[in-house]
């Protein structure tokens, strides 16, 4: 993929983000109640102080101006101060973001390895007992409430067996949360991979590869996998959304600090600048990841390069 095409993709993100952020802005205006009262969260205030606070928040300006300044601030990552801690939202997010990223990557790794393995094993010999076993496992993964399985994992492997810590900053504290996030991802990915492998295994080029004298392992690992990974890859963007969802829930279960926990807390405390900041940030990251996947797609499948 040429640099020009990549730049084109990146620029194409702008109108999309404009629409999503406009939606966020609109949603935030729909919150009932005066923003200043929300900010004060019950503390009494004099009329003059009220006016000053309104001016400081900028809510006394016309809606159009507020909208423009929201977009301008969002573009540079400024979301104002938290109602609760009075700290800049950006600072709060920046502090929690690495924790969530860590968890997302761990979950992604578990999900992709487990999902691909199950899918390939099922798809190479469809309708056999291995297939049934793998696909039932995948469906279990899709049906398990991640908060429930997370608690069970803690109960069994941390509390009872004591194999891994629940809290802490070491990599071993990341194992159980990653499995929790990864399980759900693996279920969907396994199903996609299976269908894709079945389709690819019936293609003529697989027959050619076998006719050349390659071992079965090579035929599957090289020709089938490379081709079969293309459709699941296009859906990886959606998978990433699941990853975010998984992280939000898992952080709460494991009492891990992170964006998800921050978000849930902010919603419960009506801390709207934080909610707004996190939503704007996650949509931005999500859109960016999808563009990156698009680009990766061009590298794996030479046919889309032109």
């Amino acid at each position: 993929m040429s640099a020009r095409a990549i730049l084109g993709r990146l620029l194409g993100v702008i109108p999309t983000l404009l629409i999503t952020w406009t939606f966020v802005f609109g949603a935030m205006r729909l919150v009932p109640g005066d923003p200043v009262l929300l900010m004060l969260q019950g503390t009494p205030i004099s009329d003059s102080a009220m006016e000053a606070a309104r001016a400081k928040l900028g809510v006394d300006r016309p809606l159009v101006v507020q909208y423009a300044s929201f977009l301008a601030n969002a573009a540079v990552g400024d979301f104002g101060d938290s109602f609760r801690s009075r700290q800049p939202v950006t600072k709060l997010i920046a502090a929690e973001f690495p924790k969530t990223l860590e968890l997302a990557l761990g979950g992604f790794l578990v999900g992709v390895v487990l999902g691909t393995t199950l899918g390939v094993m099922a798809g190479v010999r469809p309708n056999g007992w291995v297939d049934t076993l793998c696909m039932t496992t995948a469906l279990v993964g899709l049906s398990l409430p991640s908060f429930w399985i997370g608690m069970i994992l803690i109960q069994v492997f941390a509390t009872q067996l004591g194999w891994v810590p629940v809290l802490g900053s070491g990599w071993d504290a990341l194992i159980l949360p990653s499995i929790t996030v990864g399980l759900f991802l693996a279920g969907g990915l396994a199903r996609l991979t299976r269908n894709s492998i079945i389709e690819v295994m019936g293609q003529d080029y697989i027959r050619t590869a076998r006719a050349k004298g390659l071992t079965t392992v090579r035929v599957v690992a090289k020709h089938a996998m490379r081709n079969a990974m293309i459709p699941p890859l296009t859906l990886l963007g959606i998978q990433f959304a699941l990853l975010i969802g998984g992280a939000v829930v898992t952080e709460t279960v494991f009492a891990r600090p992170g964006i998800g926990k921050l978000l849930v807390q902010a919603v419960l405390e009506k801390d709207f600048p934080v909610v707004q900041g996190i939503v704007v940030l996650t949509t931005g990251v999500y859109v960016l990841i999808n563009v990156l996947i698009d680009i990766a797609y061009g590298i794996i499948d030479p046919r889309v390069q032109e």
């Binding site: 050619t208 020709h223 081709n227 293309i230 046919r303």
Partner: peptide, 10 residues
């Protein structure tokens, strides 16, 4: 069919 008999990604 040489198009389908050759692997498109190699």
């Amino acid at each position: 069919e040489p198009m389908s008999a050759l692997d498109p990604v190699f």
